[in-house]
């Protein structure tokens, strides 16, 4: 059992900059928690505080029920995978993986058994005697993972581990990380700025912005019920359409039921339909400005009523639309999101 519990964790740098402004999180044993957010949102700092590489300015961080604020990284029983892999360039792959065990005085035959097992799981057996520079990016990534798993730590920490890989390899490694974590059942915290990576990996998805947690929960919960405008715009690709609608409404936009006062209306591109057969909660008239065909689907970019805010509509398969064409799209009432324009918080 090894859960991670953060309570009001803050990070204030010497210059007075507050990078993390009181984050509280519960990460259950065996859970895969993903921290996602734009660069500079404090997600990496938070991870580094859990690792012990940054001091904690306020609040507490507890691993397995033990507060670790003042405990050295080595004593926290964690393993970390870095963005640039951080392999020891002068050691062979074998020594890279064995280093942490040797430092802890593990018996030689046990080190050998554990390294070989990790190498088998990660399919790096043929490279054990090579130096990191003789490996490809994907292989280095595997070695970095191997170095983490041989130690059998309580918690895995991942700091954007896939961002140095090309797109194809990234998807492949993403699936493997997920499988590996499922198999090992080790509590994991994973930092990324890629929302797709975040959605696919997470048991618990934490969206951060400006040093604070915007929303935490199951990925689909965040997708279906974003609690803030920021989360609504961040989760999902292409992003949710967000239009500020004044009390008096907007030309070209029909909204039979809405909260009183000005609101930010959110509707996902995939929930807008052209046929409009279903009972609609929203109807918009747009003039197509650009058509993006990606194969399985087509994205229509258009301006509301020809000169209003830009909206995106997703159409399955191929579309026959051309720029300049006028179309009406509708969305069902339960697919609409309303936010307070001042606070950015969800209404209803």
């Amino acid at each position: 059992m090894s859960d991670v519990r953060l309570e009001g964790v803050r990070k204030v740098y010497a210059g007075g900059v507050e990078a993390v402004k009181g984050v509280s999180l519960d990460i259950a044993d065996g859970q895969f928690c993903v921290l996602v957010g734009p660069s500079g949102c404090g997600k990496s700092t938070l991870l580094r505080m859990v690792a012990g590489l940054e001091t904690i300015s306020g609040g507490t961080c507890a691993i397995d029920g033990r507060v670790v604020n003042e405990i050295e990284p080595a004593e926290r029983d964690i393993a970390m995978v870095f963005q640039n892999y951080a392999l020891y360039p002068h050691m062979s792959v074998y020594d890279n993986m064995a280093y942490g065990l040797r430092n802890r005085g593990t018996p030689k035959d046990e080190i050998d058994a554990r390294v070989k097992e990790a190498a088998r799981i990660l399919e790096v057996e043929p490279f054990l005697q090579r130096k990191p520079k003789a490996l490809s990016g994907g292989q280095r990534q595997r070695v970095a993972m191997g170095r983490a798993i041989v130690r059998k730590p309580k918690v895995f920490l991942f700091d954007e581990p896939l961002s140095n890989l090309d797109a194809k390899l990234r998807i492949q490694m993403r699936v493997e990380i997920k499988k590996l974590q499922r198999a090992l059942k080790t509590t994991s915290i994973y930092v990324t700025h890629d929302q797709l990576e975040a959605m696919t990996l997470a048991d618990q998805l934490v969206v951060m912005n400006k040093g604070q947690v915007e929303q935490a929960g199951a990925p689909l919960e965040l997708y279906e019920k974003p609690q803030t405008v920021f989360v609504a715009g961040f989760i999902g690709a292409p992003p949710m359409n967000l239009v500020t609608v004044p009390e008096s409404g907007l030309p070209g936009l029909t909204l039979p039921e809405r909260p009183p006062g000005p609101v930010v209306l959110g509707v996902r591109p995939e929930h807008l339909h052209e046929d409009g057969a279903s009972p609609f909660g929203l109807a918009i008239e747009i003039v197509v400005t650009a058509v993006e065909a990606v194969g399985a689907e087509t994205y229509l970019y258009g301006a509301l009523n020809g000169d209003g805010p830009e909206l995106i509509v997703r159409v399955a398969g191929r579309a026959t639309h051309v720029p300049g064409q006028r179309l009406t799209a509708t969305a069902a009432p339960d697919q609409l999101h309303f936010f307070n324009p001042q606070t950015g918080k969800r209404i209803g």
Partner: peptide, 11 residues
Amino acid sequence: SVIEAAAIDGA
């Protein structure tokens, strides 16, 4: 990060 990795590795 290499030094940090070593610190986490218990050196």
